[in-house]
Amino acid sequence: MIKEACVESYLEAKLAQKKGANRIELCSDLANDGLTPDFEDMKKACSGLDIPVMVMTRPRAGNFVHSSEEVEQMKIAIDQAKEAGADGVVFGLLTAENKIDEANTRLLAEYAHPLPVTFHKAIDEMDDPVEGVRVLKTIPNIKRILSSGGKATAREGQQVIRKMIAETDGKIIILVAGKVTAENVNEMQQITGTTELHGRKIVADLTLSEKI
Protein backbone atom coordinates (compact mmCIF):
# COMPACT_ATOMS: atom_id res chain seq x y z
CA MET A 1 0.00 0.00 0.00
CA ILE A 2 1.21 3.50 -0.92
CA LYS A 3 0.08 6.30 1.40
CA GLU A 4 0.23 9.74 -0.24
CA ALA A 5 -0.05 12.64 2.21
CA CYS A 6 -1.55 15.89 0.98
CA VAL A 7 0.29 18.84 2.55
CA GLU A 8 0.63 22.58 2.10
CA SER A 9 4.08 23.26 3.54
CA TYR A 10 7.57 21.82 3.75
CA LEU A 11 7.22 21.33 7.51
CA GLU A 12 4.02 19.34 7.05
CA ALA A 13 5.76 17.28 4.39
CA LYS A 14 8.64 16.50 6.76
CA LEU A 15 6.20 15.50 9.48
CA ALA A 16 4.20 13.33 7.09
CA GLN A 17 7.38 11.54 6.07
CA LYS A 18 8.26 11.00 9.74
CA LYS A 19 4.79 9.58 10.37
CA GLY A 20 5.09 7.04 7.56
CA ALA A 21 3.91 8.67 4.34
CA ASN A 22 5.27 7.01 1.19
CA ARG A 23 4.71 10.00 -1.07
CA ILE A 24 3.78 13.69 -0.82
CA GLU A 25 1.36 15.82 -2.79
CA LEU A 26 2.56 19.39 -2.23
CA CYS A 27 -0.04 22.14 -2.60
CA SER A 28 -0.92 25.56 -1.32
CA ASP A 29 -4.34 26.71 -0.10
CA LEU A 30 -5.92 23.37 0.76
CA ALA A 31 -8.98 25.32 1.98
CA ASN A 32 -9.67 25.69 -1.75
CA ASP A 33 -8.79 22.06 -2.53
CA GLY A 34 -5.16 22.84 -3.37
CA LEU A 35 -3.39 25.28 -5.66
CA THR A 36 0.13 25.50 -7.10
CA PRO A 37 2.62 25.81 -4.23
CA ASP A 38 5.31 28.46 -3.95
CA PHE A 39 8.50 27.69 -5.88
CA GLU A 40 10.60 27.92 -2.72
CA ASP A 41 8.39 25.32 -1.03
CA MET A 42 8.79 23.07 -4.07
CA LYS A 43 12.57 23.30 -3.83
CA LYS A 44 12.65 22.71 -0.07
CA ALA A 45 10.39 19.68 -0.24
CA CYS A 46 12.08 18.10 -3.24
CA SER A 47 15.57 18.51 -1.80
CA GLY A 48 14.72 17.88 1.85
CA LEU A 49 12.66 14.69 1.69
CA ASP A 50 13.55 11.06 1.09
CA ILE A 51 10.19 10.20 -0.48
CA PRO A 52 8.70 11.28 -3.84
CA VAL A 53 7.07 14.71 -4.11
CA MET A 54 4.18 15.37 -6.50
CA VAL A 55 3.52 19.06 -7.16
CA MET A 56 0.01 20.44 -7.62
CA THR A 57 -0.41 22.50 -10.80
CA ARG A 58 -3.61 24.51 -10.42
CA PRO A 59 -3.60 28.26 -11.03
CA ARG A 60 -6.78 29.27 -9.21
CA ALA A 61 -9.64 28.10 -7.04
CA GLY A 62 -13.05 27.36 -8.49
CA ASN A 63 -13.93 25.12 -11.39
CA PHE A 64 -11.57 23.12 -13.59
CA VAL A 65 -12.40 24.81 -16.89
CA HIS A 66 -9.13 26.53 -17.75
CA SER A 67 -8.47 29.23 -20.32
CA SER A 68 -5.49 29.24 -22.68
CA GLU A 69 -3.85 31.82 -20.40
CA GLU A 70 -4.29 29.52 -17.41
CA VAL A 71 -2.88 26.60 -19.37
CA GLU A 72 0.22 28.73 -19.95
CA GLN A 73 0.40 29.38 -16.18
CA MET A 74 0.23 25.63 -15.63
CA LYS A 75 3.15 25.16 -18.02
CA ILE A 76 5.18 27.62 -15.93
CA ALA A 77 4.30 25.65 -12.78
CA ILE A 78 5.40 22.43 -14.52
CA ASP A 79 8.70 24.10 -15.45
CA GLN A 80 9.16 25.07 -11.80
CA ALA A 81 8.37 21.54 -10.63
CA LYS A 82 10.99 20.16 -13.02
CA GLU A 83 13.57 22.69 -11.87
CA ALA A 84 12.81 21.93 -8.22
CA GLY A 85 13.36 18.22 -8.78
CA ALA A 86 9.77 17.03 -8.34
CA ASP A 87 8.86 13.41 -9.00
CA GLY A 88 5.61 14.28 -10.76
CA VAL A 89 2.86 16.85 -11.24
CA VAL A 90 -0.85 16.90 -10.51
CA PHE A 91 -3.51 18.64 -12.58
CA GLY A 92 -7.02 18.23 -13.97
CA LEU A 93 -8.92 20.01 -16.71
CA LEU A 94 -12.58 19.75 -17.71
CA THR A 95 -14.75 21.25 -20.42
CA ALA A 96 -17.75 23.45 -19.65
CA GLU A 97 -19.84 20.29 -20.04
CA ASN A 98 -17.86 18.54 -17.27
CA LYS A 99 -16.13 16.19 -19.67
CA ILE A 100 -12.36 15.63 -19.74
CA ASP A 101 -10.65 18.51 -21.56
CA GLU A 102 -8.81 16.04 -23.72
CA ALA A 103 -6.94 18.54 -25.90
CA ASN A 104 -5.38 20.53 -23.05
CA THR A 105 -4.83 17.43 -20.92
CA ARG A 106 -2.87 15.84 -23.77
CA LEU A 107 -0.92 19.06 -24.27
CA LEU A 108 0.06 19.38 -20.60
CA ALA A 109 0.74 15.68 -20.12
CA GLU A 110 3.17 15.79 -23.04
CA TYR A 111 4.68 19.02 -21.72
CA ALA A 112 5.21 17.48 -18.30
CA HIS A 113 7.17 14.51 -19.67
CA PRO A 114 9.30 12.90 -18.27
CA LEU A 115 7.50 13.77 -15.03
CA PRO A 116 4.48 11.46 -14.59
CA VAL A 117 1.05 13.06 -14.24
CA THR A 118 -1.73 12.49 -11.73
CA PHE A 119 -5.13 13.70 -12.96
CA HIS A 120 -6.72 15.07 -9.81
CA LYS A 121 -10.24 15.02 -8.38
CA ALA A 122 -11.64 17.16 -11.17
CA ILE A 123 -12.77 13.76 -12.47
CA ASP A 124 -15.25 13.57 -9.58
CA GLU A 125 -17.16 16.51 -11.07
CA MET A 126 -18.13 14.32 -14.03
CA ASP A 127 -21.53 12.61 -14.21
CA ASP A 128 -19.66 9.37 -14.87
CA PRO A 129 -16.06 9.17 -13.60
CA VAL A 130 -15.70 5.80 -15.34
CA GLU A 131 -16.07 7.63 -18.65
CA GLY A 132 -13.22 9.87 -17.52
CA VAL A 133 -10.99 6.83 -16.99
CA ARG A 134 -11.89 5.63 -20.49
CA VAL A 135 -10.53 8.90 -21.92
CA LEU A 136 -7.54 9.35 -19.64
CA LYS A 137 -6.13 5.86 -20.19
CA THR A 138 -5.59 6.81 -23.87
CA ILE A 139 -3.45 9.85 -22.98
CA PRO A 140 0.28 9.09 -22.68
CA ASN A 141 1.96 10.04 -19.40
CA ILE A 142 -1.22 10.05 -17.28
CA LYS A 143 -0.11 7.56 -14.63
CA ARG A 144 -2.69 8.09 -11.86
CA ILE A 145 -6.19 9.37 -11.31
CA LEU A 146 -7.09 10.83 -7.90
CA SER A 147 -10.72 10.07 -7.13
CA SER A 148 -13.34 9.32 -4.50
CA GLY A 149 -15.60 7.76 -7.11
CA GLY A 150 -17.60 10.93 -7.64
CA LYS A 151 -18.79 10.95 -4.03
CA ALA A 152 -17.82 12.94 -0.94
CA THR A 153 -15.99 9.97 0.58
CA ALA A 154 -14.22 6.87 -0.66
CA ARG A 155 -16.63 4.79 1.40
CA GLU A 156 -19.62 6.23 -0.50
CA GLY A 157 -17.80 5.95 -3.81
CA GLN A 158 -16.39 2.46 -3.37
CA GLN A 159 -18.52 0.79 -6.04
CA VAL A 160 -17.67 3.43 -8.64
CA ILE A 161 -13.99 3.25 -7.64
CA ARG A 162 -13.99 -0.49 -8.29
CA LYS A 163 -15.57 0.13 -11.71
CA MET A 164 -12.91 2.77 -12.41
CA ILE A 165 -10.13 0.33 -11.48
CA ALA A 166 -11.64 -2.30 -13.79
CA GLU A 167 -11.82 0.26 -16.62
CA THR A 168 -8.10 1.10 -16.37
CA ASP A 169 -7.05 -2.25 -17.89
CA GLY A 170 -4.01 -1.93 -15.63
CA LYS A 171 -2.82 1.17 -17.54
CA ILE A 172 -3.48 3.76 -14.81
CA ILE A 173 -3.50 3.63 -11.01
CA ILE A 174 -6.64 4.85 -9.26
CA LEU A 175 -5.35 6.83 -6.29
CA VAL A 176 -8.21 6.74 -3.80
CA ALA A 177 -9.13 9.85 -1.81
CA GLY A 178 -12.13 11.08 0.13
CA LYS A 179 -11.81 11.22 3.93
CA VAL A 180 -9.07 8.58 3.98
CA THR A 181 -7.35 8.79 7.37
CA ALA A 182 -4.74 6.97 9.40
CA GLU A 183 -7.60 5.28 11.24
CA ASN A 184 -9.45 3.91 8.19
CA VAL A 185 -6.77 3.57 5.51
CA ASN A 186 -6.57 -0.21 5.74
CA GLU A 187 -10.34 -0.53 5.50
CA MET A 188 -10.47 1.87 2.52
CA GLN A 189 -7.83 -0.20 0.77
CA GLN A 190 -9.87 -3.35 1.30
CA ILE A 191 -13.26 -1.99 0.22
CA THR A 192 -11.96 -0.25 -2.90
CA GLY A 193 -9.31 -2.73 -4.01
CA THR A 194 -6.75 -0.03 -4.75
CA THR A 195 -3.02 -0.11 -4.02
CA GLU A 196 -2.57 3.65 -3.44
CA LEU A 197 -4.46 6.01 -1.14
CA HIS A 198 -4.34 9.76 -0.54
CA GLY A 199 -5.43 12.05 2.25
CA ARG A 200 -4.83 15.11 4.36
CA LYS A 201 -4.82 12.92 7.49
CA ILE A 202 -3.62 9.65 5.98
CA VAL A 203 -0.71 9.28 8.43
CA ALA A 204 -1.71 11.86 11.07
CA ASP A 205 -3.73 15.01 11.56
CA LEU A 206 -0.82 17.21 10.57
CA THR A 207 -2.64 20.38 11.59
CA LEU A 208 -2.73 19.16 15.20
CA SER A 209 0.51 17.17 15.43
CA GLU A 210 3.82 18.38 16.71
CA LYS A 211 6.02 20.31 14.29
CA ILE A 212 9.59 19.32 13.55
Rank of each mutant, 00 (worst) to 15 (best):
M126A: 07
I161G: 08
M56H: 04
L115M: 10
E12Y: 01
E131F: 06
G149S: 11
T57S: 06
D38P: 04
A81R: 00
I165Y: 03
D50Q: 00
I24P: 07
T36G: 00
E183I: 07
R155T: 14
L11K: 15
E40Q: 12
K19F: 04
G48R: 00
K201F: 02
A122L: 14
V89M: 13
P52E: 04
M54G: 03
T153I: 12
D29K: 06
Q159S: 10
N22H: 02
R106C: 13
H120M: 12
N186A: 09
G149K: 11
K14P: 00
Q158S: 15
K163V: 01
K179P: 06
I51L: 07
L108I: 05
D128L: 01
K3C: 14
E131T: 06
A84W: 01
L107C: 12
T118C: 11
E25W: 01
V89Y: 02
V203L: 00
E12S: 11
D50C: 01
A77E: 06
A77W: 03
E167L: 00
I174K: 04
I173P: 05
C46S: 02
L94M: 15
E196T: 11
K143P: 13
I139G: 08
H66N: 12
E83N: 12
E210F: 15
L107I: 11
Q158Y: 10
T36P: 00
L115A: 15
K143D: 12
R134A: 02
H120S: 13
P140L: 09
G170Q: 04
S68P: 13
A13K: 07
T95A: 07
L49Y: 05
R134C: 06
E69R: 11
K99Y: 06
A177R: 13
L93V: 14
M126H: 03
N186D: 15
E97Y: 05
G20I: 00
L26F: 07
V55I: 14
I191A: 04
P114D: 12
N98C: 13
A45D: 05
M164F: 01
A61P: 06
R58P: 09
I2L: 13
I165R: 05
A112F: 12
T105I: 13
K121I: 05
I212M: 06
A16T: 08
G150C: 02
V53F: 00
S68T: 12
R60T: 04
K163C: 01
I78K: 04
A154Y: 10
R134H: 05
G193D: 00
Q189C: 12
V90Q: 10
I139N: 10
E70M: 02
A112T: 09
M56A: 11
N32G: 01
K43M: 09
V117E: 12
E110I: 07
D41A: 10
L206V: 09
L94G: 11
K43V: 11
E210H: 07
A81H: 00
R144L: 14
E131G: 02
D128H: 05
V203S: 02
R144S: 08
V180D: 08
E102H: 09
E25S: 11
M188N: 04
E210I: 14
I173K: 07
